[in-house]
Simulated assay, not measured.
Amino acid sequence: MLSISEFSQMCHLSPQALRFYHAEGLLVPAGIDDRTGHSSYAFDQVERAMLITLLRDTGMSVKLVRRALDEPDQAVALLDRHSDEVSRQRQAQADAIAAARAVFEAQPEPRLRHVPATTAVARLVPGTPLGRDAQEWDRAEEIITAAAADLVATVRQAGVTCRGEPWRTLALETPEQDRRVLDGAGPFWTVKVAVDGTPETLPSLPAGLIVQTPGAHDELSIFMPGRNTMAKYCTVVLRLLDAAPVDGDRFVNLARLRQEVRPDGVLSSAPVERRPGSPTEDLER
């Protein structure tokens, strides 16, 4: 019989690790002294210790290691599934590193730009969750992205030429939409795409599509690398507010914030508008 110290040296496992595996039922000592409580191991337990070390070195959980040892005919299949999971985790980490690097390298800052008048086709997006946690937010992103792609396909099938990428905005363009958003009933989002032509020259479009004519305006835009998240959305709002004009009669209308999701990030833009009742607005009227 080998003492825990001797077995530890032989297997290159610390006494703490051996006690942990004992507690988890992975490697139970061959004997325990009733008087001193000291553990002892048999030489033939070295093989099980070796297998445990091999499996744990792969990153397998204790639960999976126990199953692989208890069902040796399933060990290879378990390793294959674990390998797939490790690959997914590594890819997720690589994506996260790339996103973090892009944000720190780009140092995203708002830019003021002029947007000419255009014609756009819009559609409400039903069924999106509120995005109260990461899972809800990701699910909403999937639904909105699919709705934007479907909008573009529908518009093209109607014989209309799309210009640029589609975008999404909060569904806050009418009193009824405002009420349904505030009530939590939704829809919460609208997808849009710019098109060639005017409302008068466009062909008949399927039901549910809305033709809009946004006028020329200035807007603050900021590009945030990586995938869209609630934290990035809030960061965009804060940076647009910080960069807002401070001449007293203009403001950034965040209720009309629009986002264009691109392969490498998200371009967020909000119009710079005159405050209602400002002298400049009265002159423009």
Rank of each mutant, 00 (worst) to 15 (best):
T235E: 13
V121I: 15
D44F: 05
L69M: 11
A77N: 05
Q9E: 15
Y233F: 14
G31I: 00
I222L: 14
D133F: 04
M1E: 10
P15H: 08
V125K: 01
Y41M: 06
S269V: 05
L241D: 12
A158G: 10
L130V: 13
L26Q: 02
A244F: 02
T128E: 05
P214I: 13
G59K: 06
A207K: 09
L202H: 02
L2C: 06
G164Q: 10
R250I: 03
P108G: 03
V115C: 10
G159W: 09
T190G: 01
A30L: 00
S87W: 11
E260I: 15
E24V: 04
Q45C: 04
D282N: 11
Q9N: 14
T118C: 14
V181P: 04
A23E: 15
R179L: 15
A140C: 09
E142Y: 05
D70P: 00
G164S: 10
V115W: 03
T174S: 15
A122R: 10
N228I: 06
V211Y: 07
G131C: 03
I4P: 06
S3M: 00
A49N: 05
V252A: 08
S61Y: 07
E71T: 12
R179M: 14
E71D: 12
R179Y: 08
K192V: 03
P175K: 05
A207I: 01
A68I: 02
Q74S: 11
Q9F: 08
G131P: 03
S278T: 07
P126K: 07
A23R: 15
P279Q: 11
I4Y: 01
E281L: 15
A153Y: 00
F43E: 11
P129A: 08
S39T: 00
Q91H: 13
L241M: 14
P29W: 02
S221H: 02
R274C: 09
P225D: 12
A120W: 00
S40E: 05
L172H: 02
R113C: 12
V76F: 12
L124T: 09
D218S: 13
I144E: 06
V62H: 03
L254H: 04
T128I: 10
Y233K: 12
Q135R: 13
G186N: 01
D264H: 11
Q91W: 05
K192Q: 15
L202R: 03
V65S: 02
V195E: 03
E219C: 10
G226R: 09
V65G: 02
L240G: 03
G186T: 03
P110W: 07
G197D: 07
A194G: 02
A216T: 08
T154A: 12
I97T: 04
A153D: 14
E85R: 14
A255P: 02
Q89A: 10
T190M: 11
G215F: 09
M60D: 03
V125D: 01
M10F: 11
A231C: 01
F20H: 15
P29G: 05
D57C: 06
L26G: 07
